[in-house]
Simulated assay, not measured.
Amino acid sequence: MKKILYILDQPNLYGSEIHVLKLIDMLKHNYDITLLCFNNGPLLERIPKEIHVKVFPMGWLSIGTFPHLINFIKNERFDYIHCHQPKAMLYGSMIGKLLGVKTFVTVHSLPENNRDSYRHVFKRFLVYAFHTTVLFLSELVSSKIIYLTQFSLKKSFFQHKAICIPNWIDVDTEVRIYNSSKTLKLVSIGSVSYQKGVDRLIEALYLVIDLPWELTIIGDGEKKYLSELRERIDLLGLTKRINFLGYKEDTESYLKVSDYFVLLSRGETFGMVYLEAMSVGLSIVAWNIPAVLEVVPSYNLIINSISQLKNIFTKEYAKDYQQRADLNISYVKENFSTSSVLKSYLMIYG
């Protein structure tokens, strides 16, 4: 059985980490898998017992740890190294090149996505330049580059060795659709950050303050940004209508009792949470960005202005709710199934 080493920097429970967890679950019967992380984190508690786990505490400048990391990988004689997240991509691909091990990198975020998490102009420039350099070097020395969307694939520095393998999701055969007749229940899931557009979602909802809605926000964020949001919400008189729940592991239960999933991101590389929402029949409200246009069908509400959010309250839009629910579920089943993605990974790993 061939041996695969997956490398992660931060084993949290967000998009890239859940992607790796699902990848391990999908392939654990086909390969001997080891997960190596540069930190401890909640993801490690969810790794199947039969998977080998190794933690090498390592920062960007932990030069002293680097030889130990090389020796570990060399002694284990892995057939493949597969890296996720920028630091893991850079160090893992360099070690793979040094040891002659076939190395894959999966690009979960583009430099502009990292940049868009910040508002200060100079900091945005530095972050963009740094992540562009890391991505270029990682792609340069890797054997194969995996992107999650066709849009992001076009950004690759080395098109000849880049491919697109999307995220995937299993859809329940029995889906309960909830459509309230009075107050619309909106839910937003993701990191509470400037990049995810939580600030403009709040401004959009203020424009429909006289209409019946309530919003649940699930996800963690920086204290400063959260404080700014709460101050703005209080100033706009929306405190009783917007509920911050923080991080929740079981997001599906919240999706199933909501009417619309709303996420007005400034940038996404894929947006797994859109699939999760559509898989339980929710209609989507999203901002018009390339990744959204590729993942979310156009019969959902894709907006260019915060004033367009009001469309979900119209009778004309509401009457097609069940039809959109059925279409979204079918769309996810047909385009993002586990079986098709499994074939792709078995093909590239061999």
Rank of each mutant, 00 (worst) to 15 (best):
V332C: 04
N243T: 12
L36H: 12
I233G: 09
A291L: 06
M278N: 03
N179V: 12
R200E: 01
R115A: 04
R119H: 02
Q322K: 14
T103Q: 09
L229Y: 14
S298Q: 13
I47W: 04
S93I: 08
T133P: 00
R124F: 00
S62V: 11
V171A: 15
K182S: 05
I7A: 11
S305N: 04
K343G: 06
K54F: 07
G267C: 03
F313I: 03
L207P: 00
N39M: 14
L110P: 03
I95A: 06
Y128S: 09
Y118I: 10
G221Q: 02
V134P: 05
E214Y: 12
G350H: 12
I233P: 02
L293N: 12
L43Y: 04
G219V: 01
N40K: 14
S283R: 13
S253I: 15
L207N: 02
S16R: 12
Y260F: 15
A162V: 08
L44M: 03
E17T: 12
F104L: 04
Y317N: 14
H68G: 10
D250C: 07
H160L: 10
L255E: 05
K3T: 05
I233Q: 10
N311Q: 06
V105W: 04
N304A: 10
E139C: 10
P212G: 05
T65A: 11
F336M: 04
D250Y: 12
I7K: 15
Y194T: 08
L342N: 10
S253K: 15
T269N: 00
V208K: 01
W287E: 11
N75K: 14
Q195T: 07
T183I: 10
F78Y: 15
V192Y: 01
F244Q: 08
P86A: 14
S227Q: 06
P57V: 13
S339C: 06
D199F: 12
H68F: 11
L264S: 08
K22I: 09
W60H: 12
R200M: 06
L245Q: 12
F336P: 00
T216V: 07
Y206W: 06
N288A: 04
F336I: 03
D25K: 14
V295S: 09
T269I: 02
L61R: 13
E174F: 14
D116H: 07
G92R: 09
W213D: 04
L205H: 07
H82R: 08
R46V: 05
T314I: 02
Y247E: 02
L282R: 13
N300T: 13
N39C: 11
E112R: 15
I47R: 12
K161W: 11
S340W: 07
T132D: 10
S193G: 00
D234I: 09
V341M: 01
K123E: 00
L126W: 10
T106A: 04
L215W: 08
E252P: 01
L5V: 08
I165N: 04
E228Y: 11
H84P: 00
E249C: 03
Y274A: 08
G281V: 05
R232G: 11
S109W: 01
F313S: 02
P111D: 13
K74F: 07
A325I: 05
Y225C: 02
K223F: 08
I24H: 09
K185D: 02
S340G: 07
R266T: 00
S143V: 06
